[in-house]
């Protein structure tokens, strides 16, 4: 009995997202964005600022690859004139290229095509989605953020999203980690055991590109070499709102 009353103690703490905007989600420093064009920094290129090579200067155009950015903020601190934080948690994308800010040319068309193809594939599972998480070499923090989706603040059960113990019941594979060689085979067998249609989400920069962990003798440098990825989530680790955005995007319940 005391637990029933304790459960009522703080009233409703659950977010209304995606029905309504959430101030925490909108204010979260989710990505780094280039602000200017100057690619020269005291004789060194700005690319050297980044420990994971996320900064590109193609043809004077400054770009940040969120799929590599570990959000350390070094570029923002050292060159606040060139880089700034972009608040917002709706950071998941349908192609690897779409993680680059500002957008690469032709990304939009590719995304539209993928969106249509994914929507056709996932039409059957829109209101009830079962997610199987697989750790393919994470640092452990990603699991905390995935588990947070089940706490009362995010409470994904209200959206018909459930975590399942068996890949046999799964519609979505949520994969974290850089793709350690030791997980290649377990990951392949998990995918094989999952019924079709299946949506694969690469959760976090480690899963997208290997992040700071790659290159190395023991990791693949992202899971895309191990299986086909449908949705990409940046962040190190991705915040729970970004993961929720990815799940909604994966099932066509949100458009961008």
């Amino acid at each position: 009995m005391p637990w029933v009353l304790r459960g009522l103690r703080d009233g409703v703490v659950t977010t209304s997202y995606p029905r309504r905007a959430d101030p925490y989600a909108d204010g979260f420093p989710g990505t780094v964005k280039p602000l200017g064009h100057d690619p020269i920094l005291d004789g060194r290129t700005v690319e050297d600022l980044c420990p994971t090579g996320a900064i590109r200067t193609d043809g004077g155009m400054l770009r940040v690859d969120s799929g590599r950015c570990i959000l350390c903020g070094r570029c923002v601190v050292q060159r606040p004139d060139l880089f700034g934080w972009t608040p917002g948690s709706e950071t998941a994308r349908l192609t690897r290229d779409a993680l680059v800010v500002p957008e690469l040319p032709d990304t939009d068309d590719a995304v539209e095509q993928l969106r249509a193809e994914l929507a056709a594939r996932t039409r059957m599972l829109r209101r009830s989605v079962h997610v199987r998480h697989v750790d393919a070499g994470s640092d452990g923090s990603e699991e905390w953020e995935v588990l947070a989706l089940l706490n009362p603040v995010y409470d994904v059960h209200r959206l018909g999203i459930f975590f399942t113990a068996s890949p046999r019941h799964a519609d979505v594979l949520l994969v974290t980690g850089a793709g350690s060689h030791g997980m290649t085979e377990p990951l392949r067998r998990t995918l094989e055991a999952t019924p079709r249609p299946v949506v694969v989400i690469a959760a976090g920069v480690d899963a997208a590109s290997g992040g700071l962990v790659a290159p190395g003798y023991a990791v693949a440098g992202g899971i895309a070499t191990l299986l086909d990825v449908d949705v990409w989530v940046p962040g190190a680790p991705p915040s729970p709102f970004s993961l929720l955005h990815a799940l909604l995007l994966a099932t066509g319940r949100i458009q961008r």
Binding site: P51, A136, H181, V219
Partner: peptide, 21 residues
């Protein structure tokens, strides 16, 4: 299964990148 080879990954980094790893 999730060995990531981090000891070797540290080698060659400067200490500012090392603390991030």
């Amino acid at each position: 299964a999730k060995h990531r080879g981090l000891q070797k990954r540290f080698e060659g980094l400067d200490v500012d990148d090392g603390v991030l790893l």
